[in-house]
Nucleic acid binder design. Structure first.
Length: 254
DNA sequence: ATGGCGCGCGCAGCGCGA
């Protein structure tokens, strides 16, 4: 199974890129974030034409997540169970025996903001939920935009970013706590040392200068990680006209 | 070099992302 994740920053605008990427890479599963579409506007027909089933939890203007799959999708759950959240940031389902969890972790805006506190609460709720899910599903994958760069090697300039959002100690501790549940960061498992960014600011030529961050992740349960291989980030979509600011990431499992 | 880009909304300019 090839599992992938991509923050598309508007599925309406990025649909041609998504269709092109699906045709080129043929993932079994693609988790999307920031679809920014209400469910009645989801481009289901075009994706089905491309050979993908889809489930989605969207809202107007902001957020929104979806899971595309070439295989049957069952046990669909919207949001984090028993945790009230008006923002559409989580969607899960079982595909080919793998529990797939698609997440769009809040950005946080600034460490002094209410949005940052919401981000930490959201991560805590995610932690508790994943603990339960891991007790139910041996083969589990969490894919998405985590808005956390786990290590200084995951940022273009650690000194410049300081202890702001995306790299603050509390966010990194929350990320580590997810791994301690029994999840492996598939990047760490398979990639040689070096920078493999997944996001670059639209401004100031950040992509051209490779001033990016690694904030999109694929976490695999121990049993699933054992037979996984080939973590990749595909920077080709980021080079196109009107790209998403994120690049898709993917990993293979058996 | 976070004032600089790109998105949605909605028709001007703002909130937001990371």
């Amino acid at each position: 199974m090839r599992l992938a994740s991509w923050n598309v920053n508007s599925l309406k605008v990025r649909l041609p890129h998504v269709l092109e990427w699906l045709a080129a890479q043929q993932p079994d599963v693609l988790c999307l974030q920031e679809t920014k579409l209400e469910d009645q506007h989801f481009p289901l027909a075009a994706l089905e034409e491309a050979g993908y089933q889809a489930i989605y939890a969207g809202q107007k203007t902001y957020n929104g997540v979806a899971i595309l799959s070439r295989h049957p999708i069952t046990e669909i759950v919207r949001g984090i169970p028993d945790w009230a959240d008006e923002q559409q940031r989580a969607l899960s389902a079982t595909i080919q025996g793998i529990r797939i969890i698609c997440v769009y972790v809040p950005n946080g805006q600034d460490v002094d903001s209410d949005k940052y506190q919401y981000k930490l609460r959201w991560l805590s709720a995610l932690h508790d939920w994943l603990g339960h899910e891991l007790s139910q599903h041996q083969h589990l994958a969490v894919l998405g935009d985590f808005n956390i760069a786990p290590y200084d090697t995951d940022v273009y300039d650690a000194a410049e970013l300081g202890q702001g959002i995306l790299v603050s100690p509390a966010e990194r501790a929350a990320f580590s706590a997810l791994l301690e549940l029994g999840l492996e960061d598939s990047f760490s498992t398979h990639t040689n040392p070096g920078q493999n960014f997944t996001w670059w600011d639209y401004r100031a030529g950040a992509f051209r200068r490779n001033r990016g961050l690694r904030i999109d992740h694929i976490l695999l349960s121990t049993a699933l990680a054992k037979n996984s291989s080939d973590w990749q980030v595909d920077t080709n979509p980021r080079k196109q006209e009107r790209p998403s600011d994120h690049a898709p990431v993917m990993v293979s499992t058996n």
